[in-house]
């Protein structure tokens, strides 16, 4: 009989940190190894700039080339950071779609000794990294070529980092909620995230102030976390322009941070509760190894 050497199998569960790091590593490989690093770098640079360029040209056609105008600066920064909203939300929920529909490995993930929501968050981290690179590239392009007045010495780094962290908790939680919902549906699942992103875009104040919206729609914007988040980001990056927004001028930075904390907590709790609900439903209905081929 042939002697076989078996690798020792750990009897301990991997724990959340190991799950998160392994999932993030897997997510990064999936995001980046479909081509060689040069093409991936080109893809990562050109894509966000062309997306931003649509708005740049729209502005140019109407207002001409005054890119230091607060309206343009607000629009440009908002548009750049919306890439992060998309990346965080879609990165997390695409984990379910990719693993169920494309790689067909979701059932194996489910029988592995890990917590699926933590695995999903790990998968989303890679997407957040790619989106962060896109945000930096877009901002750099703006500063170098359009003279967008972001001065590093004037940036409120602490506010920026805290706001980014709170925003990411909210967006990742939204991604987990979407991921849970995606377990239940089979048609048009790929456009679910796009639909939410497009909807949130209107009410986020990312590229136009909420005051432009009709009064009834404005209320929706106030009830959602993104508008507050974008104001915080602008106040951190371009303090002078960031404080000009008339709708939020009566909010101090501290007030806005408290609101962002409250939204982050609320969405994190919602994510846990809804994912548990959808996960239970999906197991009951035998959806975990479903392949819709849609």
């Amino acid at each position: 009989m042939e002697n076989t050497v078996r690798a020792p199998i750990s009897e301990k569960n991997p724990g959340p940190v190991k799950t998160l790091s392994s999932a993030a590593w897997l997510g990064w490989k999936i995001e980046s190894n479909w081509t060689d690093p040069f093409i991936f770098a080109f893809y990562s640079i050109v894509r966000p700039i062309t997306q931003a360029a649509i708005l740049i040209v729209m502005y140019l056609v109407i207002r001409g080339g005054n890119f230091a105008d607060p309206d343009f600066v607000n629009m440009y920064i908002g548009n750049a950071f919306y890439l992060l909203v998309n990346g965080a939300m879609q990165g997390v929920y695409f984990g379910i779609l990719d693993d169920r529909e494309h790689y067909r490995t979701l059932k194996y993930i489910y029988i592995a000794p890990l917590q699926v929501p933590i695995y999903l968050v790990g998968r989303g981290l890679a997407s957040i990294v790619v989106a962060s690179i896109s945000v930096v590239i877009t901002l750099l392009f703006g500063v170098v070529f359009l003279k967008v007045p972001i001065v590093l010495a004037e940036v409120n780094w602490l506010l920026l980092l805290v706001a980014l962290a709170l925003g990411m908790i909210t967006m990742v939680s939204l991604g987990v909620i979407l991921g849970g919902w995606a377990l239940m549906i089979k048609n048009n699942i790929y456009t679910l995230g796009d639909a939410l992103a497009a909807g949130l875009f209107i009410f986020s104040g990312a590229v136009f102030p909420l005051t432009v919206l009709p009064r009834a729609l404005r209320v929706v914007g106030y009830a959602l976390p993104l508008a507050y988040w974008f104001v915080l980001i602008r106040r951190a990056l371009v303090p002078e322009i960031g404080h000009l927004d008339p709708m939020f001028s009566h909010f101090s930075d501290g007030n806005l941070l408290l609101i962002a904390v409250a939204f982050a907590l609320l969405f994190a709790v919602l994510a846990v509760v809804t994912f548990r609900f959808f996960d239970h439903q999906a197991r009951e209905k035998g959806n975990i190894d479903m392949v819709s081929n849609y």
Binding site: L55, M58, Y59, V61, I62, R63, D71, M75, A195, A198, G199, F201, I202, V207, F208, P209, V212, L213
Partner: peptide, 15 residues
Amino acid sequence: LTMVGYVYVYRALKA
């Protein structure tokens, strides 16, 4: 929804 987003960009720019 995407269209609404772009419409309000133009509205904000007073196009």
